[in-house]
Design a protein around this nucleic acid. Sequence first.
DNA 1: TATTACGTTTCATATCACGAAACACATATA
DNA 2: TATATGTGTTTCGTGATATGAAACGTAATA
Lengths: 261, 261
Amino acid sequence: MTKKDNHVQSVIRALEIIEFLNEKKEQGVTQIGEALDLDKSTVHRLVSTLRYKGYVNQNPVTQKYSNSFKLFEMGTIEIDRLGLIRRANPYLEHLASKTRETVNLAILDGPRAMYVEKIESTEVIKADIGVGRSYPAYATSLGKAMLAYTPREKVIRLFEKEEFTKFTPDTIGSLDELLAELKIIHRRGYAVDDQEFIPGLACVASPVRMGSGDAVAALSISYPRYRYKSGGREELSMVELLLEAARRLSAEFGYEGGVND
Amino acid sequence: MTKKDNHVQSVIRALEIIEFLNEKKEQGVTQIGEALDLDKSTVHRLVSTLRYKGYVNQNPVTQKYSNSFKLFEMGTIEIDRLGLIRRANPYLEHLASKTRETVNLAILDGPRAMYVEKIESTEVIKADIGVGRSYPAYATSLGKAMLAYTPREKVIRLFEKEEFTKFTPDTIGSLDELLAELKIIHRRGYAVDDQEFIPGLACVASPVRMGSGDAVAALSISYPRYRYKSGGREELSMVELLLEAARRLSAEFGYEGGVND
DNA sequence: TATTACGTTTCATATCACGAAACACATATA
DNA sequence: TATATGTGTTTCGTGATATGAAACGTAATA
């Protein structure tokens, strides 16, 4: 399109149909065609190919199309690969029962932190971020924890073209600021998000590291800011629990060093 | 291929590459080409299209390709649609804490029961079936519970072409047998799987019903058979809890009738 | 240095995807 | 009841576009 890339037109169109169905739900070929500026017949041919491969279903009464659950099935297989969730679960359970707050597990997906598992707080007022969603790594404690244990050149490459959005007044606003913060996190062993992404929400996070020392994932505890004083005794004791869990889980992934590399 | 279907070749090939990467992990264009019987250059063109759309990543050092987490992201959006997991979670929590056994939530995906959420038992010996996996509905309590509240014609249509695999001696072996069992389940309000799928594993399941009376999902409790006597007092009291949870969750989905339609 | 293996790019060829138009079947409108 | 308008589907002639052999670039190996 923009350049002389030799991409396959029909494949791009097919994927755009899947993406369109993923945000709308049931859509007819005409509607899809209007949205993506394609002829009805072209849409029909592509959609019928997707149905043949099991990616979309056709509602027998409305004749409209929607995505199947194949994406979900394949997506979870992709995440399962490392056995991350399976191995992390005992630690998540432990943190959840000790702190009574929401605990999360995330991985790095390019410049974003993707939440792959959580256990919700039992409190009425609680943090709740959906599994499968991803957010800019620089704005979350999970993301910063992982970036702090990622080679500096890779961090620079990931963010040199990214915009830094100010979600709140305290959101990190530039690459330089991020790199400075990562140094602090690396020395300390955990990252803090004090209302940098969502007003009122605070988190602490620590990396899960593999043999090389780099992060494969991160664990976090998130809670409403008002419940604990920032840097207070209660918060620090949660950090203790978190560091211990992250340390033990890292050992399962072959990391043998200490917190300070 | 087999018929004179007008499916789009390049789209089929692209999807097969995604599926191939989904079961292997990192693969090079040559390997992919050998596996799918395509020329290197064709694979490269398709893979570069998939990368352009964000479905695959290229490892900068090995230059090999792997699937990104976009599938996971899209898959969870698909499942989130009904808000099923969000609404079901409190009931799952409640059942888990009362019974201390593994509790599951599944939906019907064609003729298969797909597990979309679970809470694991705290016992050392426990049932554990992975989220995102699906299994033949006739062989699981969750599947049977949903089928019992699905129009009979639809059940027949789903299974008339399916093979019935005998996973254990007690697995349902034919459509007639299945239809007879569904009648019993419908009258009773819950389904039982007594080692019909995995030797030593027992489950009870009850449907989550919507306004029409049909099932949208099902809840189950699963446990090692040896722990409770089949049909004994303990098992029946778990069934009581299960039925109550399913009844209340069904009410959230607009079902107002009783257990007997 | 030669060799091998890999991902990538090029390019002539014809296959294969394209979309206008016709079709079948609804449901709405006069 | 006849007509119009809306679906999804099928057909088919055209040429844009996906194809794969071969050449290329690069890196690791012998």
